Amino acid sequence: MLIRRETPADIDAIRTVTNLAFKDGPEAELIDWLREDEGWIPEYSLVADGVIGHVVCTRGYIGDVPALGLGPISVHPDHQRSGVGKALVHSVLGAAEARGERAVILLGSPAYYSRFGFRLAEEFGITPPVPEWRPHFQARLFAEVPAGPFRYAEPFNRL
């Protein structure tokens, strides 16, 4: 499976796979908003094999310390449970670590994301923007970070 950075030619395919994966939820529009935001980091928008999947990380902060917010991650329904999502997560985490990022934060299933080294963010003193997210709010640390609230790139606030 080939994982690579998105190109401008991939944008429509990313919208399609995201809409299919999230049943036309707001995630595809969120990705468009993120592309226009100062938190967009092109090196962290990755696609799998002809855009059967997509993952993105954008700039967030723990207090004033830069970190990454992972998501959305999308896999075409015909390719789910075939390792595409796993490959995308491994790739974006490898890119983040190689580029010297300190932490990646996400909202997702602890049972699934623990296999990638994610732990509940509250174990590190990192708090979610919405308190009800605590049971699913996770962090993967590559370096020390301070305790404190995490904030996603601004477009997440529009959801």
Rank of each mutant, 00 (worst) to 15 (best):
E38F: 06
F137I: 11
E97I: 02
W33C: 15
I105E: 05
R59C: 01
T18L: 04
L68M: 00
P26R: 15
S45D: 11
P135R: 05
L30W: 03
S91K: 01
I73S: 05
P128Y: 10
E36I: 08
E29M: 13
D32I: 08
T16H: 14
Y152N: 14
I73V: 15
R158W: 00
A13C: 14
S82T: 12
R35D: 12
Y113F: 11
R115F: 02
D12Q: 13
H136P: 12
T7I: 12
F124C: 13
V89Q: 01
W40I: 02
R119V: 12
V104T: 06
V56R: 08
R119Q: 13
D32M: 07
G69S: 14
S74K: 01
G85S: 02
P129Q: 11
L93T: 03
Y61H: 12
W40K: 04
A153D: 12
P42A: 11
Y44I: 03
R115T: 09
D64F: 05
R119C: 08
R140W: 03
P135L: 04
Q80P: 11
S114Q: 15
E6M: 12
T16C: 11
V17Q: 03
P146K: 02
I14Q: 03
I11R: 11
L20W: 10
G83P: 00
P155G: 15
E43S: 10
R151I: 07
V17G: 05
R5K: 14
R81K: 12
R35T: 12
Y152D: 12
E122W: 10
P146Y: 00
G100K: 07
E38G: 14
I3P: 06
F118E: 06
E29S: 15
A13P: 15
I62G: 06
P129M: 09
G85L: 01
E6S: 10
G63F: 07
N157K: 11
H76R: 12
P110W: 00
D49W: 04
A13R: 14
G94H: 10
I62N: 03
D64G: 08
V130A: 13
P128V: 07
G94V: 04
H136E: 14
V130N: 13
V89P: 01
R81P: 03
H79E: 07
V75E: 02
G148W: 03
G39W: 02
A96H: 01
D49P: 13
A21K: 00
E29D: 15
A103H: 01
G94D: 12
D12R: 09
N157V: 05
I31A: 08
D64V: 10
S82E: 13
N19F: 07
A9W: 09
L30C: 12
V47C: 07
E27Q: 11
P149H: 07
P110Y: 00
V17L: 09
R158D: 15
A147W: 06
R115K: 14
R102S: 07
